[in-house]
Simulated assay, not measured.
Amino acid sequence: MAAERLISRTRAQQLDFVRSIWPSIGEDEFQREDYGRLFTFIDRETNVTTKYLGRYSKHGVDEIAEYIHFLRGNFTYSKTQAITSNQISQRIDGGVISRTLDLAASVWLTTRVDTEVATGCVTWHLNDSLQSSILSHFQSTVIVNDTKSDIIPRGFTMAHLCKAYGFRVVWTDDLRDHLSVDWENQRIMVYEHLIYLYNFLMHPAPIPIPIEIFEEAIDTINLLFPSDQKRTKRFLRSEHRIFNRLGYCGRERRMRLSDYRHWRERITVLKEVLEDPPKGHHQLVLDKERRNFLNWATFWIAFVVALLTIISIAFGIVGVVYSVKSYRIALESLHVGVQQTELAIAMACTDTEMAARLPQYCSGA
């Protein structure tokens, strides 16, 4: 089944599949090294058609591409209309077609559509269109006024969140999960297919997800992974990700919460993390924007006070030890002096004439 794998196909075959999603992409614009992760995701999804042959009406990458082509022109159809369409029905069981439509939609939208599983997936009901089913999972918020709290610190990067606050990135193929946080395990989910988002900006094609959502998703990646920062480049190399090759995708790094409508709540939650002191030794360093000045100053003042206290105690102990030693030396000197005096008297008393002069010392001699 190796021939079915998109990742291992020739450049021309890969380009043919890419054009099933972005028909206008030119041959010179297709850089296959940018699509490695996306192709791996597509291979993994379409592999179920060969693993469970009876559950799908089409099998393999090429046939799923036929369904994608159908959906591109008919995403306003209800599920029932899509199933009964003469273009794809061919007297096949409706449940089989329904599952195949879900799979094709998942590959096309990089968003898990599975009506049977439902939990954690987009459910495409028989009376609903694919467009309405998808849009219910992408909600926007009202833009806030331009206030100080609206400003996002320039140090707000994924490399900083992971290094200073102990987070870990979990890369996801599902755009809905982008920037969701697992607080218990300190994990941040990040959508990794920047090339997918970028292509819809450069090569517009019909799709049920508004282009504004793709633009904003790019902006969030630019925000958290500034491609011109060395720290981010090192971080992405450690994660074996190369999407920074695309740069800022022709957009600027947006540094206000009011620039975001679809992912603003998740950005706000992550931004609030920066209001807490960093973990470990990072709390000892003053950041460039001096946002942690109070915590930094409190720590170092406490440290200096503790150090001075320890030093004063140490000097006090040294003083006591010195006094004790001086006292002992004085006693020993006095004892030696007494012994020398007694020896001199004893020697003097051996002389008869001297003994007569010193009766108070030599009377017992």
Rank of each mutant, 00 (worst) to 15 (best):
M158G: 01
E45Q: 14
N185Y: 05
L201V: 03
E29C: 14
T123K: 07
G166A: 04
I221K: 02
D114P: 04
D228L: 09
Y56M: 12
W263G: 00
R266G: 02
D62C: 10
I218S: 01
I213T: 01
T84S: 10
Y196P: 00
A3N: 14
I209T: 12
D228S: 07
C249E: 01
C362D: 05
F243I: 10
N127L: 12
L307N: 06
T49W: 01
W300G: 12
D150E: 08
C249L: 07
V336Q: 09
I68L: 04
Y77E: 06
C249W: 00
R241M: 15
L358D: 04
V285K: 07
C249K: 02
S323T: 11
L358H: 11
L331T: 07
A159P: 00
Y198L: 03
E342C: 15
D173E: 12
I7N: 08
S98W: 12
I143R: 07
Q339L: 14
Y327I: 13
Q139I: 14
L161N: 01
M347E: 13
D259N: 13
A297D: 05
R251W: 03
Q81C: 08
Y52A: 15
I345P: 02
N145G: 13
V190L: 10
R261D: 04
C349I: 07
E215R: 11
S98F: 10
H282V: 01
Y191H: 06
A118I: 08
I195R: 04
F75W: 05
L294W: 05
V190F: 06
Q81I: 10
I64K: 00
H240R: 11
T115F: 03
N244P: 03
R357H: 09
G316E: 09
M1F: 12
L109T: 09
E275R: 14
L194T: 13
I218W: 01
F75T: 01
P210I: 06
E216M: 02
H59W: 07
L179N: 00
Q90L: 14
I25L: 06
S132Y: 07
G155F: 02
E252W: 04
V269G: 10
M158S: 05
L130F: 00
L294T: 10
S89G: 06
M354Q: 09
P277K: 11
F225V: 03
M347H: 09
S140Q: 15
A344P: 01
I25V: 11
D34T: 04
S78G: 07
M255K: 07
